[in-house]
């Protein structure tokens, strides 16, 4: 009987101290405390590869099972993701186009040197359409009367002359290119002695089966000293185009059959095939 009582007291004391020890230990080995734990580290090191293997197998099995169970959900999700991808692709393409357009506009900021024209206000415009007919070389831009565009306003790019406005609606304008036989320009070439050689620059472009072919040409008096490589500018005569807008460079000079004139074939400065952005100079139709 006595033995049992002692053993009970002893047991109570042991239990008390075990609990006390545990609580103290818990208190001093909490989160964030750094205490030496070689046994735990060893155990972790030893189990890590095993866990890695088990984990990957489990994840694989779970994912395959999940795909079976959630087939409908996954199919719906797939559908919605596809829609989203399409939407994002569209958005991405739009942004790309905007960036490219921005880059082209930036390019256009490097303009040719002509005080006469850059003093006038001008608006940038995007080419939205080309003439559907085979007979005219015209383009349509997204600026119109609302933006102050008037008939006969010159249209240029940073490189040189494009044409002039021939028709204006509220928000669009039609432009006849200098390539069109009707879009004649009074041009001038500086001769080697400095004097101007004047003439009419005329386009004789025709629509070929594959691409538009033809050239700009200008007839000058036989005795004028015009050479290949000379720059052709607008003369400012005729009232439509201001002075000193580059038109193109002389490519070759041939003698006219009549013997009185020379024909200078001109390569335009502007690449009309790739024309996307232009400036409309708001001369107010003067």
């Amino acid at each position: 009987m006595a033995r049992k009582r002692i053993s009970f007291t002893l047991a109570a004391v042991i239990v008390f101290f075990v609990i006390l020890l545990a609580l103290v230990s818990i208190r001093f080995t909490g989160t964030g405390t750094d205490f030496p734990n070689p046994a735990g580290n060893l155990l972790r090191e030893a189990l890590a590869p095993l866990q890695g293997g088990v984990m990957s197998v489990t994840t694989g099995v779970r994912n395959s099972l999940a795909s079976l169970w959630q087939f409908n959900q996954l199919s719906r999700q797939n559908q919605s993701l596809k829609t989203q991808v399409a939407e994002l692709t569209r958005e991405n393409n739009q942004l790309k186009q905007k960036i490219l357009a921005g880059m082209r506009y930036e390019d256009m900021a490097k303009k040719f040197d002509s005080p006469a024209i850059w003093n006038d206000p001008y608006v940038g415009a995007t080419v939205v359409d080309r003439n559907p007919s085979n007979w005219y070389h015209t383009i349509v831009i997204n600026r119109g009367a609302k933006d102050g565009v008037k008939v006969d306003d010159p249209v240029i790019t940073n490189l040189g002359l494009v044409g002039k406005v021939i028709k204006v609606t509220d928000s669009t304008s039609e432009i006849i290119l200098i390539l069109d036989p009707e879009g004649q320009v009074s041009g001038v070439v500086r001769q080697s002695n400095g004097a101007g050689s004047f003439g009419i620059v005329v386009g004789d472009y025709k629509r070929g089966s594959v691409a538009t072919t033809g050239s700009l040409s200008m007839e000058v008096p036989k005795e004028d000293k015009v050479n290949p490589g000379d720059l052709v500018l607008t003369s400012g005569m005729g009232g439509v185009y201001p002075k000193d807008i580059p038109i193109g460079t002389v490519q070759q000079v041939t003698l006219d059959p009549s013997g009185l004139l020379k024909t200078a074939t001109i390569t335009p400065q502007v690449n009309f095939a790739n024309l996307e952005e232009v400036f409309v100079v708001l001369t107010g139709g003067k």
Partner: peptide, 16 residues
């Protein structure tokens, strides 16, 4: 105790 060491904090909690 081993589990506690493995978990690495609050040594004694699982032991108790």
């Amino acid at each position: 105790l081993l589990e506690d060491f493995y978990i690495g904090r609050f040594i004694g909690m699982n032991a108790l």
